[in-house]
Simulated assay, not measured.
Amino acid sequence: MAEIAIRNVYKIFGREPRKALAMARDGIDKAEILAKTGCSVGLNDVSLTIGASRIFVIMGLSGSGKSTLVRHINRLIEPTSGEVRVDGRNVLDLAPRDLREFRNRSVSMVFQSFGLMPHRTVLQNVVYGQRVRGLGKAEADPIGMKWIETVGLLGYENKYPHQLSGGMKQRVGLARALAADTDVILMDEAFSALDPLIRSDMQDQLLQLEKNLSKTIVFITHDLDEAVRIGAEIAILKDGRLVQVGTPQDILHRPADDYVARFVRRHAGALEADHG
């Protein structure tokens, strides 16, 4: 089980990050910082705690900073300022060797674009993390087959990605993350490219897995219906700022501002049906 603590994280993209950071700390808005420095503020003083063994959803519209934020957890993106702690350990202090070990054993990721290796079979993709750790084929393959069966792909283990539908590819990505047996799974818009029925099925499967596994799952989406359906807690970002964190009931009944309230009005029927 792993708790994630994100503290005062800023991310500035551009050639004058220190100047832009100082402006952001002074409360100058994103548009003015861009006009005066040419820098884009990806994250602006974001702090939140993600509890262990639950599905925590980070949502917002395109450009809100949600994908930027999740990539700080496994340090695919370096912050301009702030810290990220997983189980009390500051990820930003890890030396290159320790960071590789952290990514191999502590955090796995499921991408929107599937991220499968086309020259490897389903089984070879699923066990990749275990093989990188040095586990032999005889030991790794049964682990892979267990998760292939769990996500409903038994019989497809020797197929290649080009022989699979989009939904099947997404299941392979999920099975690979589960086979890696990390405490944290990051899912960046993992279901957004899927057809509605397949997407609903994958949501059901994720909820079922969450009941059976002690994993901390950070799920990124721009869809409030999806966030409310699967999330124990939801964080909403706008223009790189954290607008609100709360349960689905909090978001529905106590929106923090007009931005959140507009989301709620658009989706009120679905929210009430699932969490009324």
Rank of each mutant, 00 (worst) to 15 (best):
I73F: 10
V126Y: 00
L69I: 08
I73W: 07
N158I: 05
V172P: 00
G276R: 11
L213F: 14
V57G: 08
E139W: 00
R18E: 12
L186S: 09
D181N: 15
E157T: 07
R241T: 14
L186P: 10
L194Y: 09
F56N: 05
F191K: 02
L271R: 07
D239K: 15
V41I: 01
A190T: 01
D274K: 15
F102M: 02
N104Y: 13
P248N: 03
A177P: 08
D93E: 13
G166D: 00
D195I: 03
L135V: 14
S113V: 11
W147Y: 08
R100W: 12
F114A: 00
G60T: 02
I50Q: 05
S47E: 08
I4P: 08
E189I: 07
G144T: 04
G82N: 04
W147N: 02
S192R: 06
I6M: 05
L34N: 11
Y128L: 15
V46Q: 04
T80G: 06
G63F: 08
C39W: 03
N104V: 07
A273K: 13
Q244A: 10
Q205M: 15
D257I: 02
T216N: 13
V107G: 11
F219Y: 10
A273V: 08
I251Y: 02
A20D: 10
F111L: 12
A95W: 03
A95M: 02
I6D: 07
S81Q: 12
R254Q: 13
M1D: 13
A227H: 09
N212F: 09
L76E: 09
G60P: 07
K146R: 12
N90D: 15
M117P: 07
I198Q: 02
E157F: 06
I217E: 03
L43H: 01
S81D: 13
Q208F: 08
I28P: 03
L194R: 05
Y160V: 13
R85Y: 15
R105D: 15
G134N: 06
I58H: 12
G144A: 08
K159D: 10
I148N: 04
R7Q: 15
L69T: 09
A177F: 07
V41C: 00
V264R: 03
S67A: 01
I236R: 03
G27Y: 07
A5C: 15
I50Y: 07
I77Q: 14
G60W: 04
M202W: 07
L92T: 08
V126L: 00
I6C: 04
G27F: 05
V172A: 03
Q124V: 03
Y259E: 01
I217S: 01
V126N: 00
V9E: 02
V122G: 05
R75C: 11
L21Q: 10
V86S: 02
Y10K: 05
L207W: 00
A232R: 15
M59R: 01
K211Y: 09
S192M: 06
P79R: 04
T49A: 14
D87N: 15
S113L: 12
G152P: 14
V245P: 04
G63L: 01
G27S: 04
G155Y: 13
R254K: 11
Y128K: 12
H275T: 15
M117C: 14
D87P: 09
R133H: 10
R71H: 12
K159T: 07
A22V: 09
Y10G: 09
E78P: 11
S53C: 12
I58Y: 08
H275P: 11
K66E: 05
T150S: 13
N104W: 13
V151W: 10
